[in-house]
Simulated scan of single mutants.
Amino acid sequence: MTETVEPFTWHVAQDAIDDLHRRIDATRWPERETVDDWSQGVPLDALRDFVDHWRNHYDWRSTEAWINAQGLSTTTIDGVDIRFLHVRSAHENARPLLLTHGWPGSILEFRAAIPRLVDPEAHGGTAADAFHVVIPSLPGYGLSGKPTRHGWKVEKIAQAWGVLMARLGYAKWYAQGGDWGAAVTTQIGRQNVAGCAGIHLNMPIARPLPEDLAAPGPDELKALAALQHYQEWDAGYSKQQQTRPQTIGYSLVDSPVGLAGWIYEKMWAWTDNQGRAEDALSRDSMCDNLMLYWLTAAGASSARLYWESFASFAPAEITMPVGASVFPKEILPAPRKWAERHYTKLVHWGVLDKGGHFAAWEQPEVFVNELRKTFAAMD
């Protein structure tokens, strides 16, 4: 095990691309659904069309080159290789910012946000808005190594991110996250991880109290309706990954179409769209994200975080400064009233007009503006 940080280059052998194509070509498709909507899952025609693009019209190599050009680096923390993007601003005094993705996202969620963060003057900001950006792959996701023993919970990941930032020489830094990234970032705040001066969440984690349920206001009614929809219609994937990640992992690692259906459905369900995932996210960007799961065989190892940490997806009291942004199609919304009980120094609460669960991916300009406001309020 080494504590050094080293450059890392990722090149995918052509044999891996060819194997993907062979597997897609050999797919045994199910019959068509018996309804005319998405209530039984991804419609057959929609997934066939998406997979046809992946198979016949998508080029991985440009994204591979982009990843390698972003300061891709590696270090080992507690026996696990942590791979991450490290993009420094030209402004030496820029704020160091750690960004953590979730499932079924990846480091590529932040692709369009990176230039806006590191070069703000080219994107409507000033030098004071500049950030040095660090974007690690979660353990078991994409480029990072896969833990071989249980115990890599979000609490441990939060500590590992503190180690990472210290190795990079950042004595004072900020953290941001949504989805599992929100859970990790919440733990950074709860544990007061050394060096972290404040956090931002685009999925603040809070729960109602009995009195909230007895007399809910408009924001609370909306949140409660979203929570009910999630529990009744949208949480099957999480229960499977929480209880039997190994079982579902066999399908996700072996079948590209199975993996595509598992993830593409969330691109549809969790984005702010008009009926198609492609209304919110480009097909190529969805294929890029999918490739990080397929090429690294991460179907089981990424699902395992649910088994490890689902109980840790809970509110926590945080005494360091917190900013939060609420996007209208967030799957687990939390009204400010609920969140204020846990964040004693809430410096920013943004309510946005558009965007969904993948905030940085769907609305990079809005997302970056929210970060500028949040962290400017912490200086």
Score class of each variant (00 low, 15 high):
Pro204Thr: 08
Pro208Leu: 04
Pro335Ala: 13
Gln242Gly: 13
Ala339Lys: 00
Asp212Arg: 06
Glu370Leu: 05
Ala166Asn: 13
Gln363Ala: 07
Leu290Met: 14
Asn93Gly: 12
Gln187Tyr: 15
Asp353Lys: 15
Thr126Trp: 10
Leu295Thr: 12
Thr75Cys: 13
Trp270Phe: 14
Leu138Pro: 02
Ala122Cys: 00
Thr74Ala: 15
Phe327Ser: 02
Glu340Tyr: 06
Ala360Phe: 01
Ala298Trp: 03
Val184Trp: 06
Ser73Tyr: 07
Ala235Pro: 00
Ala314Pro: 03
Ile331Asp: 01
Arg244Phe: 14
Trp262Cys: 01
Asp52Lys: 12
Val326Thr: 10
His132Lys: 04
Ala225Met: 05
Ile24Gln: 01
Ala215Met: 04
Arg304Lys: 09
Ile17Arg: 12
Ala226Pro: 04
Ala214Phe: 08
Asp18Lys: 04
Gln70Lys: 13
Val87Glu: 10
Pro364Asn: 03
Arg22Asn: 13
Ser39Cys: 08
Glu365Pro: 00
Ala303Met: 02
Phe110Tyr: 15
Gly195Trp: 09
Val347Leu: 02
Gly145Lys: 04
Thr2Phe: 10
Lys329Val: 06
Ala376Val: 09
Tyr343Phe: 15
Thr75Glu: 11
Ile205Asp: 00
Leu143Asp: 02
Gly299Tyr: 04
Leu209Glu: 15
Glu365Thr: 15
Gly145Trp: 03
Gly356Asn: 03
Leu227Phe: 03
Gly125Thr: 07
Leu290Gly: 06
Pro245Cys: 12
Ala260Asn: 02
Arg372Ser: 04
Pro256Gly: 02
Arg207Ser: 11
Pro328Asn: 10
Asp36Met: 07
Val163Ala: 03
Trp29Asn: 13
Thr100Glu: 08
Ala311Phe: 00
Glu31Trp: 11
Ser312Met: 09
Lys153Val: 07
Ser325Ile: 00
Glu3Tyr: 11
Phe84Ala: 11
Ala377His: 09
Leu108Ala: 12
Ser302Trp: 06
Asp25Phe: 09
Glu278Leu: 03
Ala226Trp: 01
His86Gln: 13
Thr319Gln: 11
Gln242Pro: 00
Asp19Trp: 05
Thr185Lys: 05
Trp60Asn: 08
Ala300Ser: 13
His86Ala: 12
Asp59Ile: 14
Tyr306Cys: 03
Gln228Thr: 14
